[in-house]
């Protein structure tokens, strides 16, 4: 009984699928935008690979770029000032750095909205009060929070780096409907080619304390490295713990294998 019924049910599905095959056009709608879209360029960082470390000087420069350029529009909600001790700052430096920010607070006497000096336990304050304010100030585009950006985009750090360095004039053969309209900017690394963010970096926009030349490429690299850290501050620890665990388990597995062979030595199987 199961087999004849199953046969009929199977026939039903197969017929529906065969009909679906013959009614689905075999050619795709041409996606012109796709042919102009570019894959992110590779960015090599110290935190890559299986023996990663943090290039603290680079992370510090990256944070400077974030603070002086990106933070005008982009929040960094998940990062607290205390976290930047990871970048090689001392407790005192962190305190001073935090004091340089005004964070939202409440006036203790009146209960009104106020600000106060930042403390290490505070997070980087957001540039806008809320999403509506952010959109209102940015031509209805919402600058995303950058804390997780290198984990939240296909291509990660490569994408961020490519996007920051990828602004260019639209190619001559770009169809009119793909050309940037008012308030948009052409960038082949962006999914639909035109994004609301204007080219954020220009040469010597920041002055690095360590004397590194602040070219667009250098700043893009540095801030991408910094955003790799903000997205996963435990990355280096994670891989290091991983190796210790892996080697321990490797020894265990070898022992377990020998033990298995040993116990089965007298049994054919």
């Amino acid at each position: 009984m199961v087999r004849p019924l199953g046969f009929l049910v199977g026939l039903g599905f197969i017929t529906a699928l065969v009909l679906a095959i013959f009614t689905t056009p075999l050619s795709n709608e041409e996606n012109v935008a796709l042919s102009f879209h570019k894959h992110p360029r590779h960015l090599k960082l110290a935190s890559d690979g299986l023996v990663p470390h943090w290039d603290k000087a680079q992370l510090q420069r990256g944070m400077q770029v974030y603070k002086e350029v990106c933070s005008a529009c982009h929040s960094l909600n998940l990062v607290a000032f205390r976290n930047i001790e990871d970048l090689g700052y001392t407790e005192g430096q962190v305190k001073t750095f935090a004091k340089g920010f005004q964070v939202p607070s409440i006036n203790p006497d009146t209960g009104e909205v106020a600000t106060r000096d930042g403390a290490p336990s505070d997070h980087f304050p957001a540039p806008y009060l809320n999403e509506v304010a952010a959109r209102a100030a940015n031509n209805n585009a919402l600058p995303p929070d950058l804390s997780l950006i290198t984990k939240a985009r296909e291509g990660g750090k490569n994408y961020v780096y490519s996007l920051l360095t990828g602004y260019q004039n639209p190619p001559a053969n770009l169809p009119a409907e793909l050309r940037p309209s008012t308030g948009l900017h052409y960038n082949p690394y962006f999914a639909n080619l035109n994004l609301a963010m204007a080219k954020p970096l220009s040469d010597n926009q920041v002055t690095y304390a360590d004397g590194t030349k602040a070219s667009v490429d250098q700043m893009a690299k540095d801030v991408s490295a910094f955003l790799v850290w903000t997205a996963e501050p435990k990355l280096v620890t994670r891989v290091q713990v991983g190796w210790a665990t892996f080697f321990f388990l490797l020894i265990f597995t070898v022992l377990a294998y020998l033990s298995y062979r040993n116990i089965w030595a007298d049994k054919k199987h």
Binding site: G6, F7, V9, G10, L11, F13, I14
Partner: peptide, 10 residues
């Protein structure tokens, strides 16, 4: 999908 159903049911 055709093969999947065909495999089990036919």
């Amino acid at each position: 999908a055709i093969y999947y159903f065909a495999h089990f049911l036919v």
